[in-house]
């Protein structure tokens, strides 16, 4: 099993619900965003696209098969799960940020300060209004999710390992208003993701970097004004 995702850009409305759901469900501290949606070509960020010439492109961890971050990690804190998702062991990461430099997609986020301190800046009281999935989650006895991160460690998209292990889909897939996101087994030629990739001509981001991403995109159709 190789877990992968297809994002159909034709169906993406640019509502950014996936980014918000991702941030909320994974309790990301202020300043860190695992998932972001921009309009390629726009001069200013977070504006509506120009009709016919711009489109929305959501980017989060590409869960590469040849993941530079996994190879450079000096302590093996970044590792492949059994279905080849790329995960980070929060207990093992030493915070050298080598992976952030090696990742061509800019999806790795660092805890520059104690998230508890950043929470104060946004006047959020812990325990008062719980934010995100509240349990710690271990995969193979390794801490791959915790609602409050320690300072000085790296975090990123896990394909919502805490939900996937419980048989549920990632937050972004469930939240997508246009149903543009599909997750499934890339090794199974009959899975929905495989069929979408084969039949609809999916592409990956900056393939020239040789990272072999497992997130695929279906190009949007061009529109006449």
């Amino acid at each position: 099993m190789r877990i992968g995702m297809v994002i159909d850009l034709e169906k993406c409305l640019g509502c950014r619900t996936c980014a918000v759901a991702c941030k909320q469900h994974n309790a990301q501290p202020p300043g860190n965003w695992w998932n972001r949606v921009f309009t390629p070509g726009s001069k200013y960020h977070l504006i509506k696209p120009e009709l016919g010439s711009q489109y929305f492109l959501p980017v989060s961890c590409q869960h590469c098969d040849n993941a530079a971050c996994e190879k450079v990690c000096p302590v093996g804190a970044t590792f492949y799960s059994k279905d080849k998702a790329v995960l980070v062991d929060y207990d093992r990461c030493i915070g050298c940020r080598y992976c952030m430099s090696a990742c061509p997609y800019g999806v790795r986020q660092f805890n520059w300060e104690d998230p508890k301190e950043t929470h104060k800046k946004i006047e959020w009281i812990e325990g008062g209004n719980n934010y995100g999935y509240q349990e710690e989650h271990k995969y193979d006895d390794r801490l791959v999710y915790s609602p409050i991160r320690e300072k000085g460690i790296v975090e990123k998209c896990t394909f919502c390992v805490q939900y996937m292990d419980a048989g549920e889909k990632p937050a972004c897939v469930r939240a997508c208003t246009g149903e543009a996101r599909v997750i499934g087994d890339l090794d199974d030629p009959n899975s929905e993701v495989s069929r979408m990739i084969n039949n609809k001509g999916a592409y990956t981001l900056i393939p020239e970097k040789g990272t072999k991403p497992k997130v695929f995109y279906l190009p949007p159709k061009r529109k006449d004004n």
């Binding site: 501290p29 202020p30 300043g31 860190n32 965003w33 972001r36 921009f38 390629p40 070509g41 960020h45 016919g52 010439s53 711009q54 489109y55 492109l57 980017v59 061509p104 997609y105 800019g106 999806v107 986020q109 660092f110 805890n111 520059w112 950043t118 800046k121 946004i122 981001l205 900056i206 970097k209 190009p219 949007p220 061009r222």
Partner: peptide, 26 residues
């Protein structure tokens, strides 16, 4: 930024995909 793409259907080639700074400041 390594994630610099040539947006589909546009003549100007190099567009850098922004990332979150991780440093929250009002």
């Amino acid at each position: 930024l390594p994630l610099t793409i040539s947006p589909m259907g546009q003549q100007n080639g190099n567009w850098e995909y922004p990332l979150a700074s991780g440093r929250f400041m009002e």
